[in-house]
Design a protein around this nucleic acid. Structure first.
Length: 317
DNA sequence: GAAGTCCGCCGTCACTGCAA
DNA sequence: TTGCAGTGACGGCGGACTTC
């Protein structure tokens, strides 16, 4: 398989081998079919005979991999724009985006695929992914981000807002403390309230953790940083400092709030991109296995056709 | 060993579609 | 209308491999 970088070209080796192999034996002309209706395919045999075959193979699914015709057009168009001057880079970008049509998500495509084809696994939703975690780590939330503190401790921030702190040298879950951030409403029974202060003197954000420790999020730089520190302010246990956006007034506070929002957005997008790539890989794997299955089915059908032809055709001898 | 190429991965930006 | 999740595009980086 090769992805021609930045040029929207996509070719699959199995696809290529598959079609090449087919051309040596038979040529297949697909007829217009609707989804769910029987497929009638025109098969031309090497002898020149043409037969109509009602397919048992499911009809093509909507795919993120576009049809060869569309690909050809896209590549040609982009080649044109690439030949033009570099000063038209912005226009190229717009043209590319116009050329690209929005396609459904990999999860949606694969799930549609799996509903039609029993052998195709579904891409699980986040919920089921968590349910599918092995038993030995089932009690831990799936971490979204893991940070190492300056003291060597590990902080895992899970999607549900759970902060996990583990000490190095401890055996997995043993050294783990699970904390729950509560943004609004009453905390669930037994949950630990992580106290949150909007800004400290050094321009950082602090999560006050029971046990006289503070998880400090840096507010500057490209990457969010987290540290465990001794509290810089003497806050009594149980006192929660609310950080409402309405309480930010000064330009510096507004700027820092914007920075914090940007970092949060970047972090989320980073995770989303990872997840998207994971799904894409899964989807491509699924397509590859489906191609293999269809290849086998096609060979069987061709053999069956040959057998039937031998039976039905009168012998000339 | 140095230089070049290819490939995979990652972070970010821009954009779209959808749900609230 | 708005916020957010999802995804393509783009550029950078590092490792593996090839060529000289």
């Amino acid at each position: 398989m090769w992805w021609h970088r930045h040029n929207l070209c996509f070719r699959h080796p199995i696809e290529e081998d598959y079609s090449g192999d087919l051309e040596e034996k038979v040529s297949v002309a697909g007829s217009g079919t609707r989804r769910g209706s029987p497929t009638v395919t025109l098969v031309q045999l090497p002898s020149g005979q043409t037969v109509h075959v009602q397919g048992v193979i499911p009809t093509p699914q909507p795919s993120v991999i576009q049809s060869p015709q569309i690909q050809t057009v896209q590549v040609a168009t982009i080649a044109e724009t690439d030949e033009s001057a570099d000063s038209e880079g912005v226009i190229d970008s717009h043209k590319r985006r116009e050329i690209l049509s929005r396609r459904p998500s990999y999860r949606k495509i694969l799930n549609e695929l799996s509903s039609d084809v029993p052998g195709v696994p579904k891409i699980e939703e986040e919920k089921s992914e968590e349910e599918g975690t092995p038993p030995n780590i089932a009690t831990m939330a799936v971490p979204t981000s893991i940070y190492q503190t300056s003291t060597g401790q590990y902080i895992a921030i899970a999607q549900g807002g759970t902060i996990q702190i583990s000490n190095p040298g401890s055996d997995g879950v043993q050294g783990l403390q699970a904390l729950t951030m509560t943004n609004s409403g009453a905390p669930p029974p037994g949950a630990t309230i992580v106290q949150y202060a909007a800004q400290s003197a050094d321009g950082t954000q602090q999560f006050f953790v029971p046990g006289s420790q503070v998880v400090v999020q840096g507010a500057t730089g490209d990457m969010p940083t987290y540290q465990i520190r001794a509290p810089t302010t003497a806050l009594p246990q149980g006192a929660v400092m609310a950080a409402s956006p309405g309480s930010l007034h000064s330009p510096q506070q507004l700027a820092e709030e914007a920075t914090r929002k940007r970092e949060l957005r970047l972090m989320k997008n980073r995770e989303a991109a990872k997840e998207c790539r994971r799904r894409k890989k899964e989807y491509v794997k699924c397509l590859e296995s489906r191609v293999a299955v269809l290849e086998v089915q096609n060979k069987k059908l061709i053999e069956e056709l040959e057998t039937l032809k031998d039976i039905c055709s009168p012998k000339t001898d």
